[in-house]
Amino acid sequence: MKQLRYVITDPEGIHARPAALLIKLTTGFSSVITMEKGGKSGDAKRIFAVMGLGVKQGEEVLITAQGPDEDRAIKEIEDFLKENL
């Protein structure tokens, strides 16, 4: 299992467009990937789950990946978050 903590800096938080881009990325991995915020957790491959967390600027998310490609998943998700959020 691999984990990553990240504080969102985008003023709009995880809004619809970056959520969609994130899901495009996560669905490409076979690992189970979840996103957690303040005790609430959701499947990071499903748009309603990700948007449903309502992550705002300054809030921290915890990404967890478990599966054969977990290392690559966390690495690429980290790059994506830094670039877009």
Binding site: A16, R17, A19, A20, D43, R46, I47, F48, A49
Partner: peptide
């Protein structure tokens, strides 16, 4: 591109397993 992106979001909503 930025305005079109909403339709990608819509597609994903229709493909969301929970939904």
């Amino acid at each position: 591109k930025s305005e079109a992106a909403i339709f990608e979001v819509h597609q994903m909503m229709l493909e969301d397993l929970d939904y």
